[in-house]
Amino acid sequence: MKVRVQVMLKAGVLDPQGEAVRHALHALGFDGVEGVRQGKVIELDVTEGTTEAQVTEMCEKLLANTVIESYSIQM
């Protein structure tokens, strides 16, 4: 069973990498890009029966640093 976890910096946390990507897009002429946030997607291959509560625990303990990051889970 595949599970997708998306980790993003929380709103309000400065994302210097996203800003650099935004600048690069502007340099390519994509003037309509007003903001870029860069995050990561983690794909887990888990045994059938793994619960969302267990994946949440994985996020809280390791996959995200909840001081600066938020996460969402797609089972």
């Binding site: 946390v13 400065l14 210097p16 650099a20 640093n65 001081v67 600066i68």
Partner: peptide
């Protein structure tokens, strides 16, 4: 310790 260490502002 509290807080987090992020990518340098100047990258």
């Amino acid at each position: 310790l509290p807080g987090a260490l992020m990518r340098n502002a100047g990258l």
